[in-house]
Nucleic acid binder design. Structure first.
Lengths: 136, 136
DNA sequence: TTGCTCCTCACGTCACGTGAGGTGGC
DNA sequence: TTGCTCCTCACGTCACGTGAGGTGGC
């Protein structure tokens, strides 16, 4: 864990987000760089980079950026042992939504794989009758 | 396969899309209802409903609605045996992107599950050090 | 000094959500 | 006739993309 500071370009390469996305996360107060250079360049610590990585990893869970910020805040509160009942209930509710989203992602992945193999086979719609889809 | 006609509300319930989404798909010429009632109500055939279901199932593949329309068109062309070389190449390219997206979905699902269990455990960021994340 | 990287507006985009005000049809 | 369902605008939203025009720093 070095306490080196990183410019936004290096951070974007490492985490795999666009410059615009990282700047947007600052606009909405989701990930604020710990510092700025004399000339105004954003400077990110390793902790900032970890936070960006967490935000990126959470994207498939389908929360809004505002909700994501709240979840990260709740983690800090709960980890610090300073959680009120309301905080715990809120986190519980987020966790339930996350689990539901995982189940949906799992189904979507299965469907996506089936559709993808069909794309390559050039079977097109013909194979669709083989197994009755959910909307029938 | 009945040739009954369905109003948009019944279609939305069956397929699991919002009214607005189904209307939007008509706006962008992705799924056009086969008919209209005398009073202007959209009327969907079973084939229309299948098409909506396919579009919905393809959403996780990450194509734009315009690309989705092209893929459905290509399926018809290829199934009909009337595909030019260019059509086959384009479908091949779509299939490759779909496969890449499947791989990404698979990784995202794994990460999402890990994150989700961490949410419920209230471990928060503490567990993040256990396995080095990709951006380190 | 030359590039390469970064900066701040600010408008554009994609896929819809959300009323507002009005009408069809069993 | 009463509801419930549907209709068409049309503006709003979310998460960024995409230049435009200008400057920082090894």
């Amino acid at each position: 864990m070095s306490d080196q500071l990183h410019q936004i370009g290096a951070v974007a390469d490492r985490v795999g987000l666009s410059l615009r996305t990282i700047r947007h996360y600052e606009d909405v107060a989701l990930v604020i760089p710990s510092g700025r250079s004399a000339g105004g360049f954003r400077l990110y610590t390793d902790a900032d980079i970890d936070r960006l990585g967490q935000v990126k990893a959470m994207k498939p869970l389908g929360f809004s950026l505002e909700e994501t910020a709240r979840i990260l805040e709740l983690q800090v509160i709960i980890d610090g042992g300073a959680a009120a009942d309301d905080d715990l209930q809120q986190m519980e509710s987020f966790a339930e939504r996350a689990e539901a989203q995982c189940r949906q992602l799992s189904r979507q992945l299965a469907d996506a794989r089936q559709l993808t193999s069909r794309l390559r086979d050039g079977l097109g719609n013909a194979g669709a009758a083989a197994r009755t889809p959910s909307w029938r």
